[in-house]
Simulated assay, not measured.
Amino acid sequence: MSVKTLLPSATPVRFLAEDGSRVELHEGYAEPAEDRLKAAYRLMVLGRRFDVQATALTKQGRLAVYPSSAGQEACQVAAALTLSEQDWLFPTYRDSVALIARGLQPGEVLTLLRGDAHCGYDPAETRVAPQCTPLATQTLHAAGLAHAMQRRGEDAVALALIGDGATSEGDFHEALNFAAVFKAPAVFFVQNNRYAISVPFEKQSAAEALAYKGIGYGMRAEQVDGNDAVAVLAVLDDAVKHAREGKGPVLVEAHTYRIDAHTNADDATRYREAGEVEKWREADPLRRLETYLKGRNALSENEIELCHAEAEEFAQTVRDTLNAEPELDPLSLFDHVYAEPTRQLAAQRAALEAELEA
């Protein structure tokens, strides 16, 4: 593959301007079908309402912490929609909306953030790895599993969601290098939301865009407007197709923004100006897609109302689930330590079981 084919577009791929009007900055990419764009819109409405509800639950003490993804819904939903059932998703702690879009239940998604368990769902069944808190470690998991699936002849791709701060970690370098050398069917999707907690992007990297890092690994790369759901879906569709066809991994950088604070424990006003946030609110991915679909007569007011009504019902489900007290089993501490429990572990389990029965 030549250097020219590895380089990302000079400017981020874009189909829609901030006001929802069509622009022609997407050479080589086809617009996704209308039904997929409407599906993305529905899930973005659902995801935003979920995000607001989860944030409220932290204030009520029902969640220990919640990292909001408000403003990043186009990235999260597109990542879920571009994958088939046999593909794997490797999320971070901020990617709860992607898990909801993938079809997981809110109680499963929020188990980790509630502190009930390390993971609230079965990764093998859902093909969704546990949400990863340590930065960039999920990239190694994705690269390794993608290579394993390739060796087994499986028709599957691994997509790793990454924050811009994680690209400064050594694990990110090792994962991309490994995946490129072995042409693993993996897509590394960086949601560059401009801040690694309080550290702005310009203090993290001297690169004009993170997508340019791909060429150093001999990996195809692309950059996209992360608040343009049409563009994100088109670029990710193409990246997943490239990886699935055995052409090697792809690095995609989405230029987006984290509207809310890093988590509910963070005060974002200490490191960024209100005017900056308002500027990015004008690039709202949900409003942009809604305006575009309405302009094409592909989305009616009644359909919009139905989406929001569904989102309200979903929010009620989230409240009901999280307001119920969890049923905890102390013996479950021993369930996932070893495939075959050691003699010492079996003795500890028996001792605790006897103590609970006493």
Results as ranks from 00 to 15, higher is better:
residue 127 R to S: 03
residue 67 P to M: 10
residue 158 A to K: 10
residue 144 G to I: 06
residue 62 R to H: 15
residue 131 Q to C: 12
residue 152 R to Y: 15
residue 64 A to K: 14
residue 156 A to N: 06
residue 143 A to T: 00
residue 50 F to Q: 07
residue 122 D to V: 03
residue 140 L to E: 06
residue 83 L to R: 04
residue 51 D to R: 13
residue 147 H to D: 15
residue 148 A to L: 06
residue 106 P to Y: 08
residue 162 I to L: 04
residue 132 C to A: 15
residue 88 W to K: 01
residue 50 F to R: 07
residue 56 A to Q: 13
residue 62 R to M: 13
residue 98 A to W: 10
residue 130 P to T: 02
residue 121 Y to S: 02
residue 106 P to V: 06
residue 115 G to D: 00
residue 74 A to I: 03
residue 64 A to R: 14
residue 86 Q to E: 13
residue 156 A to V: 01
residue 81 L to R: 02
residue 163 G to L: 09
residue 159 L to D: 03
residue 155 D to C: 05
residue 88 W to P: 02
residue 111 T to S: 15
residue 107 G to N: 09
residue 65 V to M: 13
residue 81 L to H: 01
residue 72 Q to M: 10
residue 108 E to H: 05
residue 101 A to G: 05
residue 143 A to P: 06
residue 144 G to V: 04
residue 150 Q to K: 09
residue 53 Q to Y: 13
residue 56 A to C: 14
residue 116 D to Y: 15
residue 64 A to P: 11
residue 85 E to K: 10
residue 69 S to M: 08
residue 142 A to Y: 09
residue 163 G to Q: 09
residue 115 G to W: 09
residue 137 T to L: 09
residue 118 H to S: 12
residue 82 T to G: 07
residue 124 A to K: 11
residue 74 A to Q: 02
residue 54 A to P: 03
residue 74 A to R: 03
residue 143 A to N: 05
residue 120 G to A: 05
residue 89 L to I: 00
residue 99 L to P: 06
residue 81 L to I: 00
residue 133 T to W: 05
residue 92 T to W: 01
residue 75 C to K: 07
residue 131 Q to M: 12
residue 68 S to F: 12
residue 64 A to F: 14
residue 119 C to I: 04
residue 82 T to P: 09
residue 67 P to N: 10
residue 143 A to M: 07
residue 102 R to S: 01
residue 88 W to M: 00
residue 95 D to F: 08
residue 102 R to P: 03
residue 95 D to H: 10
residue 120 G to F: 08
residue 80 A to T: 02
residue 161 L to E: 07
residue 49 R to T: 12
residue 49 R to F: 12
residue 152 R to M: 13
residue 65 V to G: 11
residue 61 G to R: 08
residue 102 R to H: 06
residue 158 A to I: 04
residue 81 L to M: 00
residue 163 G to Y: 04
residue 150 Q to V: 01
residue 55 T to H: 13
residue 55 T to Y: 14
residue 151 R to C: 15
residue 85 E to F: 02
residue 152 R to E: 13
residue 152 R to W: 14
residue 141 H to F: 12
residue 86 Q to M: 09
residue 89 L to R: 01
residue 139 T to I: 01
residue 60 Q to S: 10
residue 134 P to Y: 02
residue 113 L to S: 12
residue 142 A to H: 05
residue 106 P to I: 07
residue 85 E to R: 12
residue 49 R to A: 14
residue 92 T to F: 00
residue 99 L to F: 11
residue 128 V to Q: 06
residue 115 G to E: 02
residue 99 L to R: 09
residue 83 L to F: 00
residue 127 R to F: 02
residue 89 L to H: 01
residue 93 Y to P: 08
residue 69 S to C: 10
residue 96 S to H: 14
residue 105 Q to N: 13
residue 71 G to V: 02
residue 147 H to F: 14
residue 138 Q to V: 03
residue 121 Y to Q: 01
residue 156 A to C: 04
residue 53 Q to M: 15
residue 97 V to R: 14
residue 157 V to K: 03
